[in-house]
């Protein structure tokens, strides 16, 4: 392990999130490198200062008293005898039954790929690769679960910077990560479901993000990004834009 690697592991090391093996490696390096040792010591001291300083913020006495009072009141209410326990139970059982049906109903409705695409955009996930367009494609050659097709070639202000192989609900998918003038745009690509009169282009907003879904018989793409709509449209082939 060299200093460069160590500095990248320092957070994990100090947070106690390294496995024993890695920890031993870090400590072996620290033993022989005074520069890194000093840096780690300084970081530990800084963290102690942060912790001590910020732990000094305490709940005000008025708040403590208010919480204590409201808890007393709530307990008084809860402890009062109930006249119709049987009725309460009956209502509970009925509600559970209704909820059960609702859940089964929801589970049977088809999963919404666009929702999953938003989740995939927001979550970091299993196996991913950051690099140049060529490196990303080489990664996909070996890892893509289907015949993928890079949705948009690099051009001015649009750069493919990574890809991730994942699942959207039940479907295997490739998520492409683009850098668009410093902002991140994800394009989730998956094999199209058998056409059921699905619109060829659907624009939507979810959680403040523009979501566009387009596709043909073979592949469907869902574009997610915190960009204005015209910017997102750059990702959609002209044939779909009309």
């Amino acid at each position: 392990m060299d200093c460069n690697v160590l500095s990248r592991y320092s957070d994990l090391y100090l947070d106690g999130e390294l496995a024993l093996e890695e920890r031993t490696e870090v400590e072996a390096h620290l033993k022989q490198c005074s520069e890194c040792r000093d840096a780690v010591t300084a970081e530990v001291r800084f963290r102690q200062r942060v912790r001590e300083s910020l732990l000094a913020a305490r709940a005000p006495t008025s708040l403590r008293e208010q919480v204590a009072r409201r808890i007393r009141e709530e307990r008084g209410r809860l402890d009062r005898p109930r006249f119709f326990p049987t009725l309460s139970y009956a209502v509970a059982v009925l509600m559970l039954a209704v909820m059960g049906y609702a859940v089964i109903f929801l589970m049977e409705s088809p999963p919404d790929a666009a929702d999953s695409a938003v989740a995939a955009h927001m979550a970091s996930s299993d196996s991913e690769m950051f690099g140049t367009s060529a490196q990303v494609q080489a990664f996909l050659e070996g890892n893509a679960p289907f015949r993928y097709q890079v949705p948009l070639e690099d051009r001015e202000g649009v750069k493919l910077v990574g890809a991730r192989v994942t699942r959207l609900g039940p479907r295997p998918a490739v998520v492409y990560l683009y850098d668009v003038a410093g902002r991140r745009v994800s394009v989730a690509q998956y094999q199209s479901a058998p056409a059921r009169g699905r619109p060829r282009l659907k624009m939507d907003r979810r959680s403040g993000l523009v979501v566009a879904t387009y596709g043909d018989d073979r592949l469907t793409q869902t574009v997610v990004g915190d960009l204005p709509e015209p910017e997102v449209k750059r990702f959609i082939p002209a044939s779909f834009s009309q």
Binding site: S7, R8, A39, R184
Partner: peptide, 17 residues
């Protein structure tokens, strides 16, 4: 959130000396 979820950030951290 979008910004935060790009993992590349984790590797850039270096010591302050």
């Amino acid at each position: 959130q979008v910004h935060a979820t790009s993992l590349s950030g984790w590797s850039e951290r270096a010591f302050y000396r």
